[in-house]
């Protein structure tokens, strides 16, 4: 399938109050989640430093 070449219709940015609601909702996360994330962060710090690099133009 060939991709269409017409620029997409302008899309409004996400309203600020929606972003605020989404961020506030993080406080409703399960109680154990921050501890799980802390453990993942710790593992990430102890593992290899994954480097993503390269050129991408044709």
């Amino acid at each position: 399938m060939n991709p269409t070449m017409n620029p997409p219709a302008a899309t409004a940015a996400m309203p600020r109050d929606v972003l605020s609601t989404l961020v506030a909702a993080v406080q409703e996360d399960p109680q154990g989640l921050p501890t799980i994330v802390q453990a993942r962060v710790q593992r990430s710090q102890e593992a290899d430093n994954v480097c993503m690099m390269g050129g991408w133009t044709a």
């Binding site: 600020r16 972003l19 605020s20 961020v23 993080v26 996360d29 989640l33 921050p34 994330v37």
Partner: peptide
């Protein structure tokens, strides 16, 4: 926001 909470112990607002 979840990363912030896990690392700093505080909940940020937007």
């Amino acid at each position: 926001a979840r990363l912030v909470r896990a690392v700093t112990g505080t909940y940020p607002d937007a």
